[in-house]
Design a binder for these strands. Structure first.
Lengths: 195, 195
DNA sequence: GTCTATAATTCGATAGAC
DNA sequence: GTCTATCGAATTATAGAC
């Protein structure tokens, strides 16, 4: 056996091509959903041949899985008051949603594709539940996950209304008003005693 | 000209066939979303020929529009206290969602199809906004629509988590606990002073 | 009213030249 | 690594016999 050298920081060769494909895939999945987003269209957006997409990612689901690996970049909320907590989280979610259409893509795909639904669930479970566990008053097993699911329900709902379905009243509502309405809700789901 | 007689209660001839197609369409749209729900599969479920679907509804979008004409059957909330209002509305929405998968279908289609998004918006706008207008404390134009959109965001979000994406913590949460958490939220969106 | 047959596209995926 | 060419399957929609 040859001694395996430590893996170099960038093992892949043509990372630029991969990145271009992934960026185009995120756009298309976000705009069209999983079914309507065709590999052909994604490849065209990336100025590359459709067969390259297959070569890099195997099949369409593999492409989506690679494009949907998403970090919510949840902020550090330790030391915040309950009131500040709700405002910080809602503001952060609005920032993330407006700054990166990957989340809209995730939501669109999650609705029509089981693998997409699992990705959405995993992302919120892994990244929001720890915050809930850190601040919620009850300690029984599964309670942090339940509170994280409540927060996710309100966040996903406003994202649906504002960015996916684009309800005129929701889409036109100023950011500050969305935060003012939703922050107490999120705060209560995380910190209130169980009703 | 022949004097037109008053339209009979059932002008269509084969209403049974239409109803069977619509029922099958609702099931398929709910289970698979707009793109994956094929006219062939819907016709097969209805034990009928695919071409009949085209004959009755013109095209796929016409079929969906007919299948998605939905009545939320909002209850009469006049005379309820603010506390009772939140409980009544959340309970009613959970009932509607669990008793008829058309709403899940609507959500699935609204995400990938502009016409579907308009239907979802119209349904919530037409049926929830009047309730908001009746109970909310501010009277400026558009405020009832904004409050209805807030309510819709929380209701759609919990429907997404529970019935579409099926987050385990949200799907496993007992109905009474969902009502207990969400009722104060809905109540506040409808009746609280503008923050 | 119902069905057969098929047109016209479009898609994911593969094979293979260079 | 990149591209051309194409297969096989599936779809919506139409035309027309009965």
């Amino acid at each position: 056996m040859s001694p395996t050298p430590p893996v170099p920081p960038v093992p892949r060769r043509s990372d630029a091509t991969r990145a271009a494909i992934l960026a185009a895939a995120r756009d298309r999945f976000a705009a069209d959903g999983y079914e309507r987003a065709t590999i052909r269209a994604i490849a065209k957006d990336a100025s590359i041949d459709p067969s390259m997409v297959m070569r890099y990612f195997g099949n369409k689901e593999g492409l989506f899985a690679a494009a949907a690996d998403f970090d919510l970049r949840m902020p550090d909320v330790s030391g915040l008051s309950h009131r500040e907590l709700g405002i910080a989280l809602v503001t952060h979610f609005l920032d993330r949603w407006e700054g990166d259409e990957t989340l809209t893509a995730l939501l669109r795909v999650g609705v029509t594709n089981p693998a997409g639904a699992e990705r959405v669930q995993a992302i919120f479970q892994e990244q929001v539940a720890p915050i809930a566990a850190a601040v919620c008053p009850d300690t029984a097993p599964g309670r942090a996950a339940a509170r994280a699911a409540l927060v996710a329900s309100q966040i996903l709902g406003v994202a649906m209304s504002r960015y996916v379905l684009r309800f005129p009243p929701a889409a036109a509502m100023p950011r500050e008003e969305v935060v003012a309405w939703l922050a107490p809700t999120v705060q209560r789901y995380l910190t209130a005693e169980r009703p």
